[in-house]
Each structure stands twice: as structure tokens, then as C-alpha cells.
Lab assay of single mutants.
Amino acid sequence: ENVVSAPMPGKVLRVLVRVGDRVRVGQGLLVLEAMKMENEIPSPRDGVVKRILVKEGEIVDTGQPLIELG
């Protein structure tokens, strides 16, 4: 699984990683606000951040690609 998608609609509050960062399974990639709750979106696997597909403040839909892992 190379693309991390939004599990719910919401607003991207914070991106916690940068392109080139090594991440571990379960590590927070970004914080999504949904229904006034902050939800940290975890990495599904170990890898390297290849691309960040959203910006802070952006509104996303369920299933929208957020981050690509390499």
C-alpha cells in the first residue's frame, strides 16, 4: 500500500512529515480534523515519504489520497 488515503472527510490541520522522511508503521503522518476532533493519521507501513498530496488547511473527502510512500 503506497498511498495513504483519508479515512473520513475533514480538514488537514498539520502535516507531520516531509518528503524524504523515513517513517515507521503507526507513526503519525498528518492530523485531520473531523467533527471538531483531531485525528492523527498513521503510516500503514515502514517506508519513505515520496510525495505529500495535500496542504495544511485543505478540505479532503473520504478516500482522497494524502501521502505517497516509497
Rank of each mutant, 00 (worst) to 15 (best):
E1L: 15
E1R: 15
E1K: 15
N2R: 15
V3L: 04
V4M: 04
V4P: 09
S5N: 03
S5V: 01
P7D: 07
P7Y: 03
P7H: 00
P7E: 13
M8G: 10
P9I: 11
P9K: 05
G10Q: 07
G10C: 14
G10A: 07
K11V: 10
V12M: 04
L13G: 06
L13H: 02
R14D: 06
L16T: 12
V17A: 05
V17M: 04
V17F: 06
R18I: 11
R18W: 04
R18M: 13
R18Y: 11
V19F: 03
G20F: 14
G20I: 05
G20A: 11
D21A: 07
R22Y: 10
V23W: 12
V23C: 14
V23A: 08
V23S: 05
R24E: 10
V25H: 01
G26F: 04
G26D: 05
G26S: 06
Q27E: 08
G28H: 05
G28K: 05
L30F: 13
L30P: 15
L30E: 14
L30N: 13
V31E: 03
L32V: 08
E33K: 04
A34S: 08
A34Q: 09
M35D: 13
M35F: 00
M35E: 08
K36W: 09
K36E: 08
M37R: 09
E38A: 11
E38W: 05
N39W: 01
N39Q: 02
N39D: 05
E40D: 01
I41M: 07
I41W: 04
P42T: 03
P42S: 06
S43R: 15
P44G: 07
P44A: 10
P44L: 06
D46I: 11
G47W: 10
G47F: 11
V48T: 09
V49M: 00
V49P: 12
K50C: 13
R51F: 00
R51C: 13
I52V: 00
L53H: 07
V54C: 14
K55H: 08
E56V: 12
E56K: 13
E56L: 12
G57Q: 08
E58I: 01
E58M: 12
I59Q: 01
I59N: 08
I59C: 14
V60A: 03
V60R: 10
V60D: 15
D61M: 05
D61W: 03
D61L: 11
T62C: 14
T62R: 13
G63Y: 05
G63V: 07
Q64S: 07
Q64K: 11
P65Q: 00
I67N: 04
L69V: 02
L69N: 03
